[in-house]
């Protein structure tokens, strides 16, 4: 048995196959990207423990993630906010975690996407579980997991075939499991088939997220994302207004009482999404009542000329350039209202 020769053959074949694999996926339009996973999130969450009263924490769902651009925010205020928003998630468990498990007394901007904010307080419901899983992971993560994350970053940053998604179901998954999932024979379970859901944003190390240019320029591509929203809106659940507001307002009071600043933010939506929201989740019943009861500075995009002019390419999120303008204008308004300060000038 000549294992030296065997190893040499194995290394050569592996190198050729993996090189070809990488080249193939790049030729298909894939490129190295970071995964918005619980490790990336936990690194940002850990920053809250050292944050001062001058810091800003952003939370909410994907609208806050896409629409608030950290560079523009920092340019206007002199402080880079901590981005903790999670796609498809309610901010309630995270806000509760920050209020009850930290001493943070800075500013918290809570994004209110009505369909998610008022959706549930049930721990196993996806909008809750998605973010609660991250909160738990942050609390329980081991040193080995932290190390794994750091070591994985160069691979994620340099290899297109390392594209991965924490949440299953993305059509762009090209790991072995994702490729096997593309094979379907009939529909034995009779479950409704979700349209292919393509990743339409890129995320940076500090979780600054931007919509991919293609989403804004390629209508067909944007329509694939709209089709996914339509799929999820097939069986809309009525809002759980009372339970969600009670839960949130209790934490809001506690946070304000200890000197924290809370801000509510409603980011833009357009087209079919906005129509559905206006019908099923009317502003007067939900947002306005929340603002009244929370009694904190609140910003609804409809109320400001600078903020209500945007069209979301896939109805729910702003394109990269629009998000930059939105962030700049929003921070200007907030500074004007003395909700935020510009630490560069003050």
């Amino acid at each position: 048995m000549n294992l030296k020769q065997t190893l040499l053959i194995a290394i050569t074949i592996s190198f050729i196959v993996l090189g070809s694999w990488e080249t193939y996926w790049r030729s298909q339009g894939y490129y190295p990207t970071l995964d918005d996973n619980k490790d990336l999130w936990a690194v940002q969450r850990s920053k809250v423990t050292k944050a001062t009263s001058n810091d800003v924490v952003l939370m909410g769902s994907s609208r806050v993630l896409f629409d608030i651009q950290l560079d523009e925010w920092e340019a206007e205020t002199g402080k880079r906010p901590i981005q903790l928003a999670s796609a498809g998630a309610t901010p309630l468990p995270l806000f509760s975690d920050i209020v009850n498990n930290s001493d943070y007394t800075g500013t918290v901007v809570v994004g209110v996407t009505p369909g998610l904010f008022f959706s549930t307080t049930y721990p196993m419901a996806p909008p809750w579980k998605r973010v609660q899983t991250r909160v738990n992971y942050y609390q329980d993560r081991t040193f080995a997991q932290r190390l794994n994350h750091q070591i994985s970053l160069p691979f994620q940053n340099n290899l297109a075939f390392m594209v991965s998604f924490e949440e299953k179901g993305y059509a762009d998954e090209i790991n072995l499991n994702g490729l096997l999932k593309r094979i379907r024979i009939g529909n034995r379970t009779g479950n409704k088939m979700m349209p292919p859901f393509h990743e339409f944003s890129n995320i940076a190390l500090d979780r600054n997220t931007k919509m991919k240019d293609r989403t804004a320029t390629d209508t067909a591509f944007a329509n694939t994302v709209k089709a996914v929203w339509a799929f999820y809106q097939q069986d809309p659940h009525p809002p759980e207004k009372e339970a969600t507001m009670t839960f949130f307002l209790k934490d809001a009071k506690k946070f304000k009482d200890r000197g924290g600043s809370l801000v509510l933010l409603r980011c833009p939506s357009s087209g079919r999404d906005r129509m559905g929201e206006n019908m099923d989740l009317p502003r007067t019943e939900l947002w306005d009542d929340l603002v009244t009861q929370a009694n904190v500075p609140s910003y609804h995009f409809e109320d400001y000329d600078q903020l209500n002019q945007f069209i979301c390419p896939e109805d729910s999120h702003l394109s990269g350039p629009d998000a930059q303008i939105f962030t700049t204008e929003l921070t200007k308004i907030m500074i004007q209202d003395s909700v935020l300060t510009n630490s560069k000038t003050n």
Binding site: M1, Q5, T6, I13, L176
Partner: peptide
């Protein structure tokens, strides 16, 4: 020990490549 070195090398490479492509979720 019984199979040719090249064949063992190919098997080894297949396993390694599949591990990398599978990525795993830890």
């Amino acid at each position: 020990e019984k199979i040719p070195s090249w064949l063992l090398g190919v098997i080894w490479a297949i396993m390694f490549v599949l591990i990398v492509i599978a990525q795993g979720t830890g």
